[in-house]
């Protein structure tokens, strides 16, 4: 598909960027004295309609975002990569709910390329082949791992590693595109997080090898080896890579690490502000909007819980606009 085929889509997204929340808006939200006044502020900004709960607000915005992208992106297949993380998360939900007999429908996240009702049915009936492709394979492996070891963590790592490998595959195929760069970053930072968690929990070689997926800018073998040798060795290894700063942040606080990763993605996608056509502005709008939604969720949750304003400010992500 030619980049100019995205002319309609990019112009529409640029028009929508005008209504995205700015850093000033986030400051104003942080200054709100209670949950109600924050909702009023969001209402004034046309961010909400009739929603009164955090979950409803977030679901409404996510739905609106996906509706917009589905309407204007000329090649719908391009959108599949944006659902990868949610798709694998939903497989995890289906497998876990099968064992716990919980209602999966309330836990599924959207957008997803999977038919969630069919997913629950296929997992419950052990018809993994019907899920299809890599997702079907990893659902089956994860299910078997949970049956054999009776440990949910073993099931989780198979799905997480499969998600990382899928993103890495996309990143390798689309190295030059913004989406490829974002996927590569997500892939590596997720692996770093897993490596640190494994090192802290002193996990064995089999577990670490299964948990850490393929890497983009890191050497997977070295990362596994360093993780097995402990936190200090891992930090020493990461110091020599492009992720040295992020590694230091993780050692201080995992919540701060999550924020820094989101901020890094925002600084990556800002390049798309200067791109007039193609999929890059779509990718930028999607991640920009996701980060905005995440920040609002943090503020609303904190206001409801009565958390300290400064702590909330520290958690609010950098914004795209």
């Amino acid at each position: 598909m030619k980049d100019t085929d995205y002319a309609f889509c990019v112009a529409r997204l640029r028009a929508n960027e005008r209504y995205m929340l700015t850093a000033k808006d986030m400051d104003a939200l942080c200054e709100c004295t209670d949950f109600g006044s924050a909702l009023n502020y969001l209402n004034e900004k046309k961010w909400l309609t009739t929603q009164t709960q955090t979950g409803e607000c977030i679901a409404y915005q996510n739905e609106k975002l996906w509706e917009l992208l589905s309407e204007c992106v000329p090649d719908k297949n391009e959108l599949k990569v944006l659902c990868t993380v949610n798709d694998f998360f939903n497989i995890k939900v289906a497998v876990k709910c099968h064992f716990t007999c919980a209602d999966a429908s309330e836990l599924y996240v959207y957008p997803t390329t999977l038919d969630t009702a069919a997913l629950s049915r296929n997992v419950n009936l052990h018809e993994f082949h019907k899920i299809g492709g890599i997702m079907g394979e990893c659902a089956e492996k994860s299910y078997k791992a949970a049956c054999l070891t009776e440990n949910g963590q073993n099931a989780d790592i198979i799905i997480d590693a499969a998600a990382i490998n899928t993103l890495r595959e996309y990143a390798l195929k689309n190295k030059a595109s913004l989406m490829g760069q974002v996927c590569a970053f997500i892939c590596d930072t997720a692996n770093i997080k897993t490596a640190y968690r494994c090192a802290k929990a002193k996990k064995g070689k089999d577990f670490v090898s299964a948990a850490i997926g393929e890497c983009c800018l890191l050497d997977r073998g070295s990362l596994i080896k360093a993780s097995l040798s402990g936190t200090a060795s891992l930090s020493e290894y990461l110091e020599k890579t492009d992720y040295s700063e992020l590694s230091e942040v993780y050692l201080k606080s995992s919540a701060e690490y999550e924020k820094r990763c989101d901020d890094e993605i925002i600084s990556l996608i800002r390049k798309a502000k200067f791109t007039a056509f193609g999929f890059d502005p779509v990718c930028a709008y999607y991640y920009g909007k996701l980060t905005e939604i995440k920040s609002v969720r943090i503020i609303l949750t904190a206001l409801k819980a009565g958390a300290d304003k400064n702590t909330v400010r520290e958690r609010v992500r950098a914004l795209y606009v």
Binding site: T4, C9, A11, R12
Partner: peptide, 14 residues
Amino acid sequence: GLVGEAGAGLLSED
């Protein structure tokens, strides 16, 4: 034609 496509994208919002 190209400007028309981009224009339609903008006009659908405003």
